[in-house]
Computed example of a mutant assay.
Amino acid sequence: MKTLTLLGVTGKPYASLVPGTCAGHRGTRIYGRLDCRAARRAIANGGYVKHRVFFADEPTAIAAGYRPCAVCMPEHYAIWNSTNKGDA
């Protein structure tokens, strides 16, 4: 079985045998679905990959300080945005 690297709630990497359900961008601290069209477009254009991180689940991404993607998770982003006005 292949070992994968995920980020934990502290933002530190750890080894996992189970793939994550969310991906994020280390620089922007945004997380989203693995099939996010914005992330796929950035990857296709040659960017993003070296900054990409993976999380076991959404609560872990949030605990690590990441915010939801407005493209692939608009409902989650709207909630985050309404409670974080001026924090971004």
Rank of each mutant, 00 (worst) to 15 (best):
P74M: 06
E75C: 02
K12L: 13
A56F: 02
A15N: 15
R52Q: 15
L6Q: 09
A23I: 03
F55R: 01
A39G: 06
C36P: 00
A61V: 02
R67D: 01
A63L: 09
A70K: 10
K50D: 12
C36I: 00
A88Y: 13
Y48K: 04
A42H: 09
A23E: 11
T5M: 09
M73W: 05
P19Y: 14
T5E: 13
E58Q: 11
C22R: 15
N45K: 14
T3G: 04
L7S: 03
D35N: 13
C36S: 10
C72T: 01
A39S: 07
G65F: 04
F54Y: 15
N45F: 14
R40W: 11
I79D: 11
R33V: 08
A70D: 08
N84A: 11
A61M: 01
K12R: 13
L4S: 06
R29L: 14
K50I: 12
I30W: 13
R67L: 10
L17A: 10
D87P: 01
Y31G: 00
A38D: 09
N81Q: 13
A56H: 10
A15F: 14
L7Q: 01
F55A: 00
L4I: 15
A39D: 02
A70I: 08
R52S: 12
G24K: 00
T5L: 10
R26A: 15
R67M: 08
S82C: 04
C22E: 12
T3N: 10
R67A: 03
A78E: 11
W80K: 00
D57Y: 05
L17W: 11
P13S: 10
H51T: 14
M1C: 05
Y66C: 00
G32T: 04
R40K: 12
A23H: 10
G46L: 12
R33F: 01
L34S: 03
K2L: 07
K12F: 09
G32K: 00
D87T: 12
T83S: 07
R33Q: 08
S82E: 13
G86S: 03
A38Q: 09
Y48V: 00
G27F: 12
Y14R: 07
G24C: 09
P19T: 06
K12Y: 08
P59W: 03
M73Y: 02
V9G: 05
C22T: 03
V18I: 14
G20A: 00
C36W: 07
R52K: 14
Y14D: 07
K85E: 04
G65Q: 09
L6D: 06
A88P: 02
S82N: 06
T83P: 00
P68D: 03
T10A: 12
T10V: 00
S16R: 01
A64Y: 06
G11L: 02
L4E: 09
T5F: 09
Y77H: 14
A15P: 04
A15E: 15
A63M: 11
R52Y: 08
P19F: 13
E58N: 03
R41G: 06
A56I: 03
C72G: 05
G86L: 06
G8H: 04
R67I: 06
R26M: 15
